[in-house]
Design a binder for these strands. Structure first.
Lengths: 200, 200
DNA sequence: GGTGCCATGTAACGCGTTACATGATTAT
DNA sequence: ATAATCATGTAACGCGTTACATGGCACC
């Protein structure tokens, strides 16, 4: 949802057309090397926003070049933006690909989970190194954005590495524990369908 | 891409039908409270895999109940799965919604970035608390999956909090620094189109 | 007969990506 | 002419989500 709200925010500054939004987005977010937004996404998102009445086309300019359709934030767009600023961002769900891989490797006798873990550790080290190097290469006047993003990435990579160590340690305890199979429940109405939506 | 490979992995154990895959996935990944996969996704992903020739329908069973279409892994499916196990998982890109929010708040005079940060910090503390509590509530025989996921989530929340502190400290240095505007580059061919793809 | 599980999906949408198409302007 | 930027999109696909539709079977 980042792009959606980014467009609302940029249009809150002043009305713009698609190409300008694209450029402004990359300027805010730190340049194309950091976050490469495709023009297609700008235009489709803009269309969806217009559909929802959050932005509306204002005018078409032609200063010697091609047409520029200028979009502006509507009242409900402004409302949505303000609500966004006032709320915390949900943790993006931990639908973690490596976690699935690890659990599957435990369930498949022909796959060695240690190797899977070691693979991932090497990858993380490599990433950590390249991020650290890239961060060091920044000159200070590059602007905040890159620095902050690199720092965040590095901190999360470190967290991942620590987590991997923990996983390995825990695997030594529960050596080759069989996967929890979904017990074949009997059909029909359950014996005790009691309990509220969230039992305390 | 987690579900895609999870299905390949589960079918590598033995052929299954859609409903069974759904149940097995949730068993592997820790139950519905942790990772709620919708049946629709199982079936559509299965269809895509069949399209790509990675799985193929094997038989249709009818043991007194409805039809069950049994799918099996093909040779190329097995190959893809093995490659997946042998490779590291890419860091999912840091397309971070909060980061966009922060950068926009710096660019918009009517929004106070301190408040945005404080909002997010409160949210993270709340999440951290609820995750820690949920983790403590686990009984040890619940299986590895939940424990590991909670630990990972907690470690990343702590990293996010540390990062927020860093951001705040850095903002004190560069008070209300104007956003880097995309400098209006002259049209036409650039003066010095020299330089390789990654200049040293 | 109702509820709830077993088992199958389809439809439509949101976000994001790659690839493609069009055309004008301007510097060399 | 050619290349590069300015500026607009469309089409198709992958992944994920919500909502809806269908039907048999078993238990009470």
């Amino acid at each position: 949802m980042s792009v959606r709200y980014a467009l609302l925010g940029l249009l809150a500054q002043h009305p713009r057309h698609g190409y300008e939004l694209h450029a402004a987005f990359e300027a805010v977010v730190g340049g194309e090397r950091i976050w490469d937004v495709k023009p297609a996404q700008i235009y489709t998102t803009l269309a969806r926003l217009q559909d929802g009445g959050l932005v509306s086309p204002e005018a078409v300019k032609q200063d010697g070049g091609p047409e520029k359709r200028i979009y502006a934030l509507t009242a409900s767009g402004r409302t949505e933006l303000d609500q966004w600023f006032d709320s915390g961002v949900d943790r993006e769900h931990h639908r973690d690909e490596f976690f699935v891989k690890l659990m599957l490797s435990l369930a498949m006798p022909e796959i060695n989970p240690r190797r899977v873990i070691q693979n991932q550790r090497l990858r993380l080290f490599k990433d950590l190194h390249s991020q650290t190097a890239a961060r060091a290469r920044l000159n200070p006047k590059t602007g905040l954005a890159q620095i902050l993003l690199f720092d965040k990435a590095i901190m999360h990579l470190e967290a991942d590495l620590r987590w991997l160590d923990m996983v390995e340690a825990r695997l030594e305890d529960v050596q080759r524990q069989p996967l929890p199979q979904p017990e074949a429940r009997p059909r029909g109405r359950p014996r005790k369908p009691r309990a509220g939506p969230t039992p305390a």
